[in-house]
Write a protein that binds this DNA or RNA. Structure first.
Ligand SMILES: Nc1nc2c(ncn2[C@H]2C[C@H](O)[C@@H](COP(=O)(O)OP(=O)(O)OP(=O)(O)O)O2)c(=O)[nH]1
Ligand SMILES: [Mg+2]
Ligand SMILES: [Mg+2]
Ligand SMILES: [Zn+2]
Length: 587
DNA sequence: GCCGTTTTCGGCCCGACTGTTTTCAGTCG
């Protein structure tokens, strides 16, 4: 029998995490201890969020290094070693003999957990979604002991819901939907306060649903309003503190409603993340306190100590309040206890944008329009960085055209005294790591960007070599969208980021945080790794192809925050003379 | 299965909503 865990060579982090999750699910179905089950899921989440391939970690530090991954203990470290070394995991395969893959797959349906999946499998001998659908049509499911007519209906709805929508959506797509509902809630006289919460408030690059919080003295009125807004397609559940709806595009929206003096505790709870909450509550518990969404309490007396504001919740534990963007249980709780939270970069720190296209290549607007947009954003500078000639499909500029553009920019710079237009170009890194132009052209430019636009399927060695050569080119200042991923469309190319970060730090080459909402590349965790382990510096760029795109800077800044970056880490927070000085250091 | 300035054993966050249940399990946040 062909198993996914077999003979596939070294597992990616994602594959290893999937296997750990599936083991957790199988143990869950087998009625194992919930703590063991949780341990597997926790280890899976930890492996999934690593910034380095586990195979590399293992090669460098052996089992000991695997053991040091949070949530991975001696036992799982050995299992991962087996998996990395042989491409197989006998323990996983043994469990699979008892529980077929298709049974754990039933658990993707909202409303079907380990117990229902097990009953469906054992009672009806059903393990696939198709079989389940026919069993529902024949009304066999409602006769499973403990199930009923409504259970069957809900499973059917669950399947429909899953088929319509089960992917995470871009933060930028969820954001306006969320704020439209928040705004409408705020307009209701019976609503005291309303806010976004969950991953959307933490500004995660994608969100699984929209989480909203409101406070009110009349919670039932709020729920009645919420479940009848025009966006509603289906009401999943509604009670006096919590309701869930599905909106027209298939997305789920959860609303929690609490009393006004509980707002801070509820916001803390509902902002999460889940690991952050669990860690925080664990600390409270060890101090004889209890935290829930209604407040902080003394465990033995249930006396309420606070919860009006988030600061009160964290303050009761003698902690600073971590910004929502970093509440991922990746060190922020410890930092908040030491009172040494990072001073994260703010949007106001941004003084300009280095990556802007115009109608000289594949942009929509002319130079002046882009400059006017930059001025309206209060920027001190903007760099025009059109594509170069090798990227024909993007209307790349020849060196003659570039010369013309430089003259046009010189003219515009005469006209403005409140903004400086820097000259630049986005060059294409070819298969040999060379770019469109040599020093005689590039030396005329203030800022040179290099990026990969093709050959994504090359070997890791080749891709890495190309990139590192470009980084070593003394004229290239910024590497744009370093991993090439496009959320929901294209995975990152297979490149050795360790080599890229090392070379960038050694040469004084800035790594881009491309703020385009479906790129956000480098991503949050990579930014943090590149800075902390390598000392890299960054530029947050919008890669605007039309003036309005320059507003994407906001998504770049929040992603930088999620990567724990401070103002000092980011080139476009400096004054122009200082930027020029830093750019010249490389040449 | 993981983990440790009170522990290497004994804990592991805490609660809402639903359906099928005569008292709570399952799923989800
Ligand atoms: N204490 C506690 N809080 C939880 C738990 N599950 C969820 N929460 C809180 C923290 C989450 O951020 C918040 C919203 O839950 P979601 O499932 O929507 O997660 P979140 O929005 O973080 O991520 P998402 O993008 O929706 O997958 O509810 C839990 O098991 N325990
Ligand atoms: Mg959510
Ligand atoms: Mg939610
Ligand atoms: Zn570009």
């Amino acid at each position: 029998m062909e198993q996914k865990a077999q003979g596939q060579g070294e597992p990616t982090n994602e594959r290893a995490a999937e296997i750990l999750d599936e083991i957790g699910d199988m143990l869950d179905i087998l009625d194992e201890s919930t703590f063991r089950v949780r341990a597997y899921h926790k280890a899976a989440a930890s492996v999934r969020s690593l910034t380095r391939p586990i195979a590399d970690i293992y090669r460098e530090g052996g089992v000991k290094a695997l053991d040091e991954i949070p949530g991975v203990g001696s036992h799982t470290a050995l299992r991962l070693e087996e998996l990395i070394a042989t491409g197989r995991l006998p323990y996983y395969e043994e469990l699979r003999e008892k529980i077929p893959e298709s049974v754990t797959e039933l658990m993707v349906i909202p409303g079907i957990g380990p117990k229902k999946a097990k009953k469906i499998y054992e009672t009806l001998g059903i393990s696939t979604l198709d079989e389940l659908m026919s069993a529902i049509t024949e009304h066999k499911v409602e006769h499973i002991p403990g199930f009923g007519r409504k259970t069957e209906e809900n499973i059917l709805r669950g399947i429909r819901q899953y088929e319509k929508m089960h992917e995470r959506i871009l933060l930028s797509q969820a954001y306006p939907i969320a704020h439209e509902i928040v705004d409408s809630l705020r307009r209701q006289p019976f609503v005291d306060r309303a806010n976004t919460a969950g991953s959307l408030r933490r500004m995660k690059e994608t969100v699984g649903d929209i989480d909203l919080l409101a406070s009110s003295e009349q919670p039932l009125k709020v729920m009645e309003y919420f479940t009848t807004i025009p966006q509603v397609a289906y009401i999943l559940a509604t009670g006096e503190t919590k309701s869930s709806i599905i909106v027209k595009n298939g997305l789920q929206v959860d609303l929690r409603v609490v009393a006004p003096n509980e707002y801070g505790a509820a916001l803390q709870y509902f902002t999460g993340s889940k690991p952050h909450n669990i860690h925080l509550r664990d600390i409270a518990k060890k101090r004889g306190l209890k935290i829930n969404e209604y407040g902080v309490f003394e465990s033995d007396t249930d006396r309420r100590l606070g919860g009006r504001t988030e600061e009160e919740v964290y303050g009761t534990l003698d902690m600073e309040t971590p910004p929502p963007a970093i509440r991922e249980d990746k060190g922020e709780i410890e930092a908040a206890m030491r009172r040494s939270l990072p001073r994260l970069i703010r949007h106001e720190d941004i003084k300009g944008d280095f990556h802007i296209h115009t109608n000289w290549s594949d942009g929509i607007n002319d130079i002046e329009t882009m400059v006017e947009m930059a001025r309206s954003l209060g920027y001190a500078f903007v760099t025009i960085s059109d594509h170069a000639e090798k990227l024909r499909i993007a209307g790349g500029l020849t060196k003659e055209e570039l010369q013309e553009q430089l003259e046009a920019i010189a003219g515009l710079n005469e006209k403005y005294d409140d903004i400086e237009i820097l000259t630049g170009m986005e060059t294409n890194i070819d298969n040999d790591g060379e770019v469109d132009f040599g020093p005689e052209v590039l030396r005329k430019l203030d800022v040179v960007i290099g990026s990969i636009h093709g050959g994504f399927r090359q070997s890791k060695e080749q891709l890495t070599r190309r990139m590192v050569r470009a980084i070593e080119n003394p004229y290239i200042n910024i590497i744009a969208h370093p991993t090439g991923r496009i959320l929901g469309q294209r995975p990152p190319y297979d490149i050795d980021l360790h080599e890229v970060f090392k070379a960038a730090a050694a040469t004084g080459t800035f790594l881009e945080l491309n703020a385009y909402p479906n790129r956000l590349d480098l991503k949050d965790d990579h930014l943090r790794e590149a800075r902390d382990a390598y000392g890299c510096k960054f530029a947050i760029d919008t890669d605007a192809h039309v003036a309005g795109n320059m507003l994407y800077m906001e998504y770049g800044v929040v992603t930088a925050q999620r990567g724990w970056l401070t103002k000092e880490d980011v080139l476009n927070t400096y004054e122009v003379p200082e930027i020029r000085r830093m750019l010249r250091l490389k040449r």
